[in-house]
Each structure stands twice: as structure tokens, then as C-alpha cells.
Nucleic acid binder design. Structure first.
Lengths: 155, 155
DNA sequence: GGTCGCCTACTCGGATACGTAATGTCCGAGTCGGAATGG
DNA sequence: CCATTCCGACTCGGACATTACGTATCCGAGTAGGCGACC
């Protein structure tokens, strides 16, 4: 069970974009330079966030990415699932219905306890991430951080 | 973020082994036949559980696998981490210390809020799985299940 | 008939190929800003 | 001096190699039980 490396990238990028002022944008190249990341691959991930409706993209000179809605309305879960997909890590293939000890369809009306337990754990994980928004993250940074980020990122 | 397919296999196998009586064992071949799984690969996963101290293996004729300790002392988390490894899905590589916007080591004394949030979510997931033991799973099965499992599995 | 020894068959354990998905890179389509030009 | 037109450069978007991991398989070492021979 492993999240893509790019998860950390987009989380930090989203946090940086949240520190910009309304109307300002940052290009994929600027963000890649800011964190020393491979620019083309980072752009690919930012596109995924755009498709998910988390970021908005502008083309042309002075274009780039910005948050599609207020930082308080963007949760960690939304960002993570945008890059990794929203599929549960445990996929029940109903092996209890296969082989020598196969159960009848009648006996499988109830979801098997194993799958249910795994699903509950996944729900707990999702709830924990959904409880934290980008605004909550920004609130934990030093008060001077946004100005510094804007100056270095766009400079 | 995806768990190996074999996770479902070993969970079901562990549940089946928990239904055996003390002293009884089931070989990898028997378990593979019971669930219609590729025997050699299943054996590889059962070995991982043996190394983790969850199962005990006996060689020779009439040998096989059995639980290494009572079902109440084996949690879902222990089984899952035995096959998947115990590494957290989100690995913080401290990209905030790289690139144009790198923070000084002084400013990174505190773990970054993003990594902390991801770690808390992982803790919630682990706690949810650690709260359920194999004995809890067995308690949800029909009362006649153990006898049926033993008959088909060892027969 | 009992006991000892050997042998066979079955078990797990680790080392070895294959397929798929994430990682990393590239080039093309579209668009806005700016400069040069003409009025 | 101002408006217009054209050009250029920068942006995102999707399509293409490369690498690493999970999947699947095989063969070898070790052991307990069963059979036969011997006492």
C-alpha cells in the first residue's frame, strides 16, 4: 500500500497556491522550480487536480494554476484522491464463492466480515483526511510565510 | 494506494485456520484448493505470515500451517502488515527543504502539517484494523461454519 | 511377533521469469501580451 | 500621439519510453510417517 510520490508534491503545491492572492497564478514551471521537481511530470499531476475541479488553469503568458475555490472548501482527502484515484485499497473479489469451499450465493447476502472491516478502516482514513482543509494547514504556518512564498514563487 | 491481491487470500486463510481444532494443520495446497488460488504463490504469502510470527509451519507429511497463537490475539492489522509491509503509504521526503523556496533546517524542527495530517490518518486506519481480531471475525460467522470448513478443507 | 532401519512422499523455503502500473519525458495546440507599423 | 495588426513566447493538454514493483512459477532442502527386513 503506497501512495504515489507525487502526492507530496501536489499537497505542497496546493498549499503554496493557497498562499497567493486572488487573481494571482503560478505556472507548473514556477512550482517545479520552487520545490526542485521534474516540471513536466508535476504538470501532469496538476492537470489531474484541474480535472477534479480543485485547481483552475489559465493558458497563455501570465497564465498558470490557481485554486478553483476557497482554501477552506478544499480538503486533504479531495487532493489525495484526485492524484491517486478514489478506489479503496482492499478490493473484495469474493473468493469465498470460489473453489472447493465455495459458499452459495444465498449465504453471501451479507458482505463478508473481512471486507466490511477493511472498508470501515478505509472510511476512518478518509474521514480523518476530510476533516482537514487547506485553510487548516495554512493556519499552522508562521504568519510571515505567505508573503515569503509569494515573493519566491512568483519572483 | 492499493493493497496486494494476496491480502484477501491470507485474511480468508487465517480465518479458515482459526476454525481448525488445536493440533490440526492445513497445507498450502489444501488452502489453495479450498479457495481456488495459485498454490505456489499462496505459499509464498503464508511464509510471510510465518516470518511475522502469526502462523506456525510444520514440515513433512501431515504438516502444514496453523495459527501461532489464539485467534483473539491476532488482529487484522497484524495480518495486513505482514503481507504488505508496515511502511506508511505517505512518505515525506521533505521537499520543503529543496529548491528555490527551501526552508532552513531551523524552520523544519516541527514536522510539516501535511506529513502530520497524513500520519494521523494512517494511525486512524491502523487503529481501526487493530481493534478487530480473528476471534471477532469468527463470531460473525454462522455457528455451523467451523465444522463445514474443517470437513471440506481437510477432507 | 516385535523392533530397527531405510526409503518414499510430502511439506515448507528461497531463488528465478513475466506482466502491469507508476514514473519520467517529450512534443503539439491554443492563447494572451507586446512590439512594430501605419494613420 | 494613438489605434490596429501581426508576431512571438509562454501556457496547458495529451501521447510516448523507461523503470520498479507485484504477480506467478519453479526447483531444492528438510522431515515425519510408513513399509520392509531382520532379529
Amino acid at each position: 500500500m503506497k501512495l504515489p510520490t507525487s502526492t507530496e508534491w501536489v499537497l505542497h503545491c496546493a498549499a503554496s497556491l493557497a498562499q497567493l492572492q486572488p487573481g494571482e497564478t503560478a505556472s507548473a514551471t514556477q512550482l517545479a522550480t520552487y520545490y526542485d521537481l521534474p516540471a513536466p511530470y508535476l504538470a501532469k499531476q496538476l492537470q489531474a487536480l484541474t480535472r477534479a475541479g480543485i485547481l483552475a488553469a489559465s493558458t497563455g503568458p501570465r497564465g498558470g494554476f490557481r485554486l478553483a475555490r476557497p482554501a477552506a472548501d478544499i480538503t486533504m482527502l479531495q487532493i489525495v484522491e484526485a492524484v491517486d484515484g478514489a478506489v479503496a485499497p482492499y478490493e473484495c473479489r469474493e473468493i469465498r464463492q470460489q473453489g472447493r469451499g465455495a459458499l452459495s450465493a444465498e449465504e453471501c447476502r451479507e458482505t463478508c466480515p473481512l471486507a466490511r472491516t477493511m472498508a470501515e478502516a478505509h472510511d476512518a482514513w478518509r474521514a480523518s483526511l476530510a476533516a482537514v482543509s487547506l485553510a487548516d494547514i495554512l493556519a499552522e504556518l508562521p504568519s510571515g510565510a505567505p508573503a515569503r512564498t509569494r515573493r519566491i514563487l512568483t519572483g
